[in-house]
Structure formats: C-alpha cells, structure tokens
C-alpha cells in the first residue's frame, strides 16, 4: 500500500467517524463499559485481596524480621564491645597494680642491698681505721725508739768527737748539747 493510499484510507476513516455511521472511537464505546467495569472489579479486587491478605504481610514480615535481626545483632555487637572495653579496663588496672608491685619489690630490694652495703662498708671502714690506728701507734713507738737511739748515737758520737778533739766535756754536757741541737731541729 502506498503512502497516499494510507493517508486516503485514514482520511476516509476519519470521515466515517465524523459522520457517526461507523462504531464510535473504541475508548468511548459504551458497548463494553459494563464488561470492562465488571472485569476490572474482578481483577482489581482479586489483586487487592491477594496482595493485602498474603503477599504484603509476608513481605513486611520478612522486612521486619530482618530489621529485628539487624537490631539484635547490633545490640549484641554493642554488648560485646562493652565487654571488651571492660576487659581492657580490667587489664589496664591489673597492669598498673602489677607495675606498682614490681616497683615496690624493686625498691625494697634496693633498700635492703643499700643497707647491707652501708653496714659492710662501715664495718670494713671501722676495721681499716682500727688497723690504721694500730699501725700508726706502732710507727710512733718505732719512731720514738729510733729517736732515742739517735740521741744515744749522737751523744756517743759527740763524746767521741770531743775526746778526739781534746776538748774536755762531761757526759751530761754533751747530752744537754745534743738535746738542745735536736730540739732546735725539731
């Protein structure tokens, strides 16, 4: 069919429609209104009851179940989280306690060691001091003895020297002179 023929046919159809000879425009044809309304009511109400009675409650039930499950899971997660936070706190407390105890033990041990060390040191000091004193006393005595000997030797030497030189000097004079000389020298 050519384009022109198609247009002609459409025009003819429109003409017929305008004259109202043929059937009216289908959407406004009252012949089928009753049938359309009846079957619309049947199918629409059927769909409505199937949806409202069975399908929508089931869907909403599923959605609600899921929401509850998610909420429950979140609650559980929060509870476990709290638990872990508490455990963490307890752990920190225990750690702090242990650390304090360790410090205390360490301090005690150190104090004890220091005390022992001090006691030992003082004992050794005292010992050393005592030994030193003994030694010093001995040295002083030895020195005094030595000094006495020196005096005697000096007196003997001086007496010998005066005798050799032909100077008359009594033993007591020599002793005095030596003592004076020694005293002078310190």
């Amino acid at each position: 069919m050519s384009l022109l023929a198609f247009l002609a046919e459409t025009a003819a159809h429109g003409g017929e429609h305008g004259e109202g000879v043929k059937a009216p425009f289908p959407a406004f044809d009252p012949t089928w209104f009753a049938s359309q309304l009846f079957w619309l009511a049947v199918f629409f109400l059927g769909l409505y009851f199937a949806l409202a009675r069975f399908i929508l409650p089931k869907l909403s039930d599923t959605l609600e179940k899921r929401a509850n499950r998610i909420a429950a899971d979140l609650d559980e997660a929060a509870r476990l989280n709290n638990q872990s936070v508490e455990a963490q706190k307890a752990l920190e407390l225990r750690l702090a306690q242990a650390r304090a105890k360790a410090r205390e033990t360490g301090d005690k041990a150190r104090e004890k060691t220091e005390a022992e060390l001090a006691a030992e040191t003082s004992r050794v000091d005292a010992d050393l001091t005592r030994k030193l004193e003994t030694a010093e006393a001995r040295i002083a005595k030895l020195r005094a003895d030595a000094m006495k000997n020196v005096e005697q030797i000096a007196v003997d030497a001086a007496e010998a020297m005066t005798a050799r030189l032909g100077v008359k000097a009594s033993r007591s004079d020599v002793k005095k002179a030596v003592a004076a000389a020694l005293e002078q020298r310190g």
Binding site: W32, S35, L40
Partner: peptide
C-alpha cells in the same frame, strides 16, 4: 441487560494482574 463478556481487554487484564 448487561454484556459482561470476557473480552480481549479482560484477557490482558488477567495477564497483567
């Protein structure tokens, strides 16, 4: 007096629902 025939419209309404 009512024509409640099952029509092509009814059929396709059945299909879509």
């Amino acid at each position: 007096a009512y024509n409640l025939s099952f029509t092509n419209s009814s059929f396709w309404m059945l299909v879509s629902t």
